[in-house]
């Protein structure tokens, strides 16, 4: 499994991650980020891409 941590003090809800990995990251009706804390290994490339595009560099991806 892959563990997903978002530093919500850093996150400014730009939503760039949503485009790279919509299965894990979403903007809710108030334009605030919501995400799943775990994802299967085969999503690693998408999740790293989501971490790469975060303007605040608030997303940490680790293999659990």
């Amino acid at each position: 499994m892959i563990k997903i941590d978002v530093d919500m003090d850093k996150c400014q809800h730009y939503g760039q991650c949503v485009f790279e990995a919509p299965e894990v990251f979403q903007l809710n009706a108030d334009d605030k980020l919501e995400y799943q804390a775990e994802a299967p290994d085969e999503m690693l490339a998408d999740l790293e891409a989501a971490a790469d595009v975060c303007p605040m560099q608030a997303i940490l991806i680790t293999k659990a």
Partner: peptide, 11 residues
């Protein structure tokens, strides 16, 4: 300025 979902929808 703000309005994230609306701006993202342009991609």
């Amino acid at each position: 300025i703000g309005m994230r979902s609306a701006v993202q929808a342009y991609r």
